[in-house]
Design a binder for these strands. Sequence first.
DNA 1: GTCTATAAATTGATAGAC
DNA 2: GTCTATCAATTTATAGAC
Lengths: 193, 193
Amino acid sequence: MPTTPRPNYSATSLLDVAVRVFNERGYDGTSMGDLATALGITKSSIYHHVAGKEALLGLALDRALSALFAVLDEPASTTGRPRDRLEHVVRRSVAVLDAELPFVTLLLRVRGNTPTEQEALERRREFDRRVADLVARAVADGDLRADLDPALVTRLLFGTVNSLVEWYRPGRGSSAEEVADTLVEMTFRGLER
Amino acid sequence: MPTTPRPNYSATSLLDVAVRVFNERGYDGTSMGDLATALGITKSSIYHHVAGKEALLGLALDRALSALFAVLDEPASTTGRPRDRLEHVVRRSVAVLDAELPFVTLLLRVRGNTPTEQEALERRREFDRRVADLVARAVADGDLRADLDPALVTRLLFGTVNSLVEWYRPGRGSSAEEVADTLVEMTFRGLER
DNA sequence: GTCTATAAATTGATAGAC
DNA sequence: GTCTATCAATTTATAGAC
């Protein structure tokens, strides 16, 4: 009897379809009618499962954020040299992106138009702060270059990770592991030579 | 007497405000009423200047794409070693992002919902193809690592560049030159050591 | 759990006066 | 160049039957 609200199976299965359509047409560009068509039911039936369009968005964003924050709590993210913990967080973030692509894609496109979106943006900023702390520690350890601004490096590094949602598709082209390997090689060791 | 359609001054000044609002609320999330409020005129008056909402989007996307393609035609992008031409295109793309931030931001968020958006996406793909060609030549020259997939590297590299629109703001924090320097250092020479 | 029917508001866009 | 007034279509959401 968990005290945290849990979506039941029906709401969850709705969510997969809804998030797919949100990503295809954009959240604002998707009407409840579009969702109904994609689901094969009527608009009215959707309201039996969820309170409305924004509640659907909230469930999706929560799923993405939960998966990303879980990475920060993994043992390899909290133990060992900060440089290695950083690489672990980067690789595991790519893995989360692979496993939860539609949800993370939606998260990264949120602009803060509604309270639901603003809350998600605040949680994203908290994630960024924790990664920035890792980068700063790795620089202080002498494992990462000290001539580059840690805050700037953090943004560029996770900018690279997040940009994957623009083109990466599971099962097509490079695997998530290949992408993570190449991303880490490029950013940690460089393209040159 | 140019044969190409040119927005007059009024249409151009409308565009700056419209693009700012599009980026704040999302294109689909912006109604003509929202635009009218931001412009301080009525909805009807907007139609005196432009054919409609989508025409406004088309003008904005064209401005971003023109600026990006101009970079590819600069002498330093077509002459010299491919590796140096690639670095030049990266640095100049950051500069375009700085100079035309609202327009490029809008471009990078387009999903292809309408013919206008689909045309913009096709031009973006053409830009990516030309950069990918540059990366492949630099690898063939032995100037970039041959153990990394050129197509993958292209996507990661410009994913990093494009991610700047998520946080970079002209005149606040790092300058565009500092960002470009750090971005090139990280991706070409690596964060380590 | 899904439906039909419908409400109430908002949407992009036009007509025509000033 | 901007306005008021208005339209037809679409939007989110609800009521209530099956």
